[in-house]
C-alpha cells in the first residue's frame, strides 16, 4: 500500500515517526507552513521556518525513504499579528522554490478583517505563481467559516478547482463538494475527524477529489492516521483501488497542479540512494547512516 500524507507538520515530529510512517506505507508527504504553538514575533522567524521546510526537513524525510514537499504562507492565526504580517512581502521569493507545491495554509481562524486581507492577498499570490492553494477551514464556527472561505475563493483569481479545502467534516462536506474544490479531511485521535466517520463520509459522498491527512503536529495527533483510514476503508468493503485513489492518486493529482511535484525520492547525498517511488514500489529501506543528532 502506498500512502501520500497531504498535510503533516513533520518539523514537530521525531525520526521514530518517519520510520513508523515508512513502515506503514507512507512514501510522500506535504508539510504546510503553520503556527508553531508559540507565537512568532517577526518575519525573520518565518524565514528560518520556511528555510527549514526547504532544506533540513526534506533531507530528514529522504533519509527514511519519504519524499517531502511543502506549502508556504502566512497562516490564519498570525495574519492577525502586525509583527508577522510583513512576511507577506517576502513570500514571492519563496513561492518560486522547486519544492513548493501550493500556497498554504491560508484561510480563516477567527474570521477577522486582517484574515480577510491575508487570505485575499495569498489567493492572488497563488494565482500569480501558478500554484494551487491549501485552505484551512476554521475550527470554531465552522460552517460560517466555510461559507466565508468559499466567498473569498469565488471573488479571487484562483478557480475553486485549484483549491483544497481542509479540515472538513460532516457539517461542511456537502457545500465544499458543491463548490468544485478538492476535499481534505484531517483525522485526529480526539478532535476533527476519526476513521469511522471518515469511512461514513466516503460512503455518502464518494472518494472522488477526497484527500485524507493526519495533520500531525506538536499537539495530540497520530502520523499513522492515514494508514488507519486505509485499513478502515478496506474493512468497510472499499477495494484497494478506492484506497489508492484517496490515499495516493488524489493527493498526487491535487499537488501536481503546481507542476512541481517530483515523486522520485531525491538523492540526499552520498549516504542515501534515491528510491523510485513513482509507482509506489517499496523503498529499499532507510539510509545506511541516518545522521545522528549530535554529529
Amino acid at each position: 500500500m502506498r500512502i501520500f500524507d497531504p498535510h503533516i507538520h513533520m518539523t514537530s515530529r521525531t525520526t521514530d515517526d518517519y520510520e513508523a510512517m515508512h513502515a506503514a506505507g507512507v512514501r510522500a508527504i506535504v508539510e504546510p507552513a503553520f503556527w508553531l504553538g508559540q507565537p512568532r514575533t517577526s518575519p525573520a522567524s518565518f524565514h528560518d521556518y520556511f528555510d527549514s521546510l526547504l532544506g533540513w526537513e526534506p533531507f530528514r524525510a529522504a533519509q527514511y525513504g519519504i519524499t517531502h514537499h511543502c506549502t508556504l504562507a502566512l497562516n490564519p492565526k498570525e495574519a492577525n499579528d502586525p509583527r508577522c504580517a510583513p512576511v507577506l512581502d517576502d513570500l514571492p521569493r519563496y513561492l518560486v522554490k522547486d519544492q513548493v507545491v501550493a500556497v498554504g495554509e491560508i484561510g480563516y481562524d477567527s474570521m477577522t478583517p486582517a484574515e480577510d486581507t491575508a487570505l485575499e492577498h495569498q489567493l492572488q499570490l497563488a494565482a500569480d505563481h501558478d500554484l494551487p492553494a491549501l485552505v484551512h477551514t476554521p475550527h470554531r464556527d465552522k460552517l460560517a467559516g466555510l461559507r466565508r472561505t468559499l466567498d473569498a475563493v469565488a471573488a479571487s483569481a484562483l478557480p475553486a478547482e485549484r483549491v483544497l479545502l481542509d479540515h472538513l467534516n460532516e457539517t461542511t462536506v456537502e457545500e465544499a463538494k458543491d463548490s468544485g474544490a478538492w476535499l481534505g479531511f484531517s483525522v485526529y485521535p480526539d478532535t476533527k475527524m476519526d476513521e469511522r466517520r471518515m469511512v461514513a463520509v466516503l460512503r455518502e459522498f464518494g472518494p472522488e477529489k477526497v484527500l485524507v491527512n493526519s495533520a500531525a503536529d506538536w499537539g495530540k495527533s497520530d502520523p499513522l492516521k492515514t494508514r488507519k483510514v486505509a485499513d478502515a476503508m478496506l474493512a468497510a468493503g472499499f477495494d484497494e483501488d478506492d484506497v489508492d485513489l484517496v490515499l495516493w492518486r488524489n493527493p498526487v493529482a491535487f499537488y501536481s497542479l503546481s507542476g512541481r511535484l517530483r515523486l522520485t525520492a531525491p538523492a540526499t547525498g552520498p549516504t542515501h540512494e534515491g528510491n523510485s517511488i513513482l509507482r509506489g514500489a517499496p523503498a529499499t529501506g532507510t539510509a545506511a547512516h541516518p545522521v545522528a543528532a549530535g554529529a
Binding site: W56, F59, A267, T268, G269, P270, H272, A295
Partner: peptide
Amino acid sequence: RTNDTSLLA
C-alpha cells in the same frame, strides 16, 4: 555546520 550530507559533500 549543517548535518545535511549533500551540503557537507
